[in-house]
Simulated assay, not measured.
Amino acid sequence: MQSKEPETLYFEESGSIPNNPDLPVLFYKGAFKDDPEKAESVFNSHNWRNSWQGGVFDYHHFHSNTHEVLGVISGSAEIIVGGESGRKVEVHPGDVIVLPAGTGHKRLTASENFKVAGAYPDGKDHNLKTDQDNQRTQLLIEIKEVEIPSQDPVYGESGPLLSLWKKEQ
């Protein structure tokens, strides 16, 4: 599979959602359009593990201790990324969204058959934070401490995530 540049989406803090001050959301439109079912196995082969299949919560939430990848397997949905003042994105089978630690996301609408595969770098266990978690200083420290993944979840060692997600030294 030839590497294709994802759309990059930057978000500042949005109300009680911290988002990620350093890293953009990556949106790989149609990355697996020929075979959406293979998303989870590809993520796993690129060391994005602890995978699952299901939906996206219908409330704003984020993970302060790890990044997350979501690959659409079936159906379609509208998801808001980046908190209340974030951006609404339509997702369809084969689309992939990579959410850096701290980035809020919420399902607004979805078809009945909407299903995603999700995974985390190095199989990290994720925490679940909502807009009710107001320990701002601690959350920002946790978010900044999350390591950059060793591989792009879609393209592996040669993927664009590795050049797009460089932390300031």
Rank of each mutant, 00 (worst) to 15 (best):
E5D: 14
T8I: 15
Y10E: 10
S16H: 14
S16V: 13
P18Y: 04
N19M: 05
P21C: 06
L23T: 01
V25C: 04
F27N: 03
K29V: 10
A31V: 04
K33N: 08
D34K: 13
D35H: 12
K38G: 00
E40K: 14
S41Y: 12
V42N: 00
V42M: 00
N47K: 14
W48A: 03
W48T: 05
W52N: 12
Q53W: 03
Q53N: 13
F57Q: 07
D58G: 11
F62K: 00
H63T: 07
N65K: 11
T66R: 01
T66A: 14
V69A: 02
L70D: 07
L70Q: 09
I73S: 01
G75V: 06
G75W: 02
G75T: 07
I79E: 00
I80M: 08
G82T: 06
G83L: 01
K88N: 14
V89K: 04
V89G: 03
V91T: 08
D95H: 10
L99C: 06
P100D: 07
G102L: 07
R107A: 12
L108N: 12
T109H: 09
A110D: 05
E112L: 12
N113D: 15
N113I: 09
F114H: 05
F114Y: 13
V116F: 02
A119Y: 02
D122N: 15
K124C: 04
K129T: 05
K129A: 06
Q138R: 12
L139A: 06
L140K: 10
I141V: 13
E142D: 15
E142L: 05
E142Y: 03
G156F: 02
S158I: 15
G159M: 09
L162P: 03
L162W: 04
L164N: 01
L164D: 01
W165D: 02
W165M: 05
K167T: 11
